[in-house]
Nucleic acid binder design. Sequence first.
DNA 1: TAGTGGTCTAGACCACCAG
DNA 2: TGGTGGTCTAGACCACTAA
Lengths: 239, 239
Amino acid sequence: MKENKYYTIYHQLAEKIENGEMEAGSLLPSEHILAEQFGASRETIRKALNLLSQNGYIQKIRGKGSVVLDVKKFDFPVSGLVSFREIAESSGKAWRTNVHELVLIRPDDALARQLKISGKEEVWQVVRSREIDHENIILDKDYIRKKFVPSITRDICEISLYQYFEKTLGLVISFAKKEITVEKATEEDYKYLDMGEYNHVVVVRNHVYLDDASLLQYTESRHRLDKFRFVDFARREHR
Amino acid sequence: MKENKYYTIYHQLAEKIENGEMEAGSLLPSEHILAEQFGASRETIRKALNLLSQNGYIQKIRGKGSVVLDVKKFDFPVSGLVSFREIAESSGKAWRTNVHELVLIRPDDALARQLKISGKEEVWQVVRSREIDHENIILDKDYIRKKFVPSITRDICEISLYQYFEKTLGLVISFAKKEITVEKATEEDYKYLDMGEYNHVVVVRNHVYLDDASLLQYTESRHRLDKFRFVDFARREHR
DNA sequence: TAGTGGTCTAGACCACCAG
DNA sequence: TGGTGGTCTAGACCACTAA
């Protein structure tokens, strides 16, 4: 289990910044000096610094140096690919997942289009509500291609599908396309969620792709308005 | 105006993929071969391929090659840093910006905290509503540090602040932190927006940073529920 | 002008995949 | 086993910033 050199360097520098050993606003040592200190080539150092920059730890300025940013001022990108469990656990609140449905279906036309597959391919349908502080505020509807995930149990749905996919099945999730809109609540929303006075939900549609660019899963995550929050950290692309 | 070599290669390959010259699902030539073809080193080719991968054109698979993705299947990330004007123009719909306020203020405590400045520093306050298909559906409240932008005119507010900042003033915007929530509509929302039956708005809070990591601007963009849409293309980070 | 980060090169070794 | 992408090196030249 050997880690990349540049990744190790990234971690060490990130830790120093988080600890406050590197003061916000100050400059990192130059790339030449870091290369000496870590016994690495400058290009390797640069890979580590690019990671730091992408994750909001530093800002590189040509001709000047790498400025340490104030990490505490940003709550970090709830990157597009984080499981409910990770968020819930880090929040420190009481949480629970209720599994309402776990069946194998053949998709109707609309779903087949979302999954970009034929209507004949079998698909797992998982419907779960998420309870936080004893209120059901999120309804997750997952559609997973049986081709990639032969079996699923209720227990797995209660803990974490992602963990099961990645740790147990060894699937490598590589990217996801997310779309956020607000829509009128459906009967299903009223049935499974504690809607209170609200009659709309925030809908997050998510297409999850594997390593080899094939589509693994389509997810519809429906949130009660007042509990929804999404954070994004966008870096300007080249040019 | 010379372009980077790797950026030129990126553009040429991206164009071929968009034109359909490289078929979706097929493999790109190997990195060694591309290096020969373009008369570049392999590392330079790899920089171009990484850009293609980051922008959803290809998926790299170790030991196998670089798979061309079906570009048409993705509508692209309305990356965090796109102006209203760009979106409105590309939609092909009738649009208009109404400027309601353009004044120099000293921020109150709440705003000073958002901008991370002292209450003594002067700030431009710009309030605009956005009309699409003859309905006011977005309310944009911008707060811009006078330190970086000495003067603003009504005309500029009607066209594009971003264009003015970047093209005319030469400011280089480098990253932004965005937060999306849903909140009860305020009196101001009712005043400037055609709220119809709705009593909530989607609020996008945006902190915009410059090249040297200083905060340029805080923006609150308030959208009528039914017209809001946000797309995000998230790539799994290393590990 | 000295020092910084940005680009580019030519070559090396490795881990992974397919036949 | 041969070819692929992933990592790493040592060195070079450039554009930019600050003194």
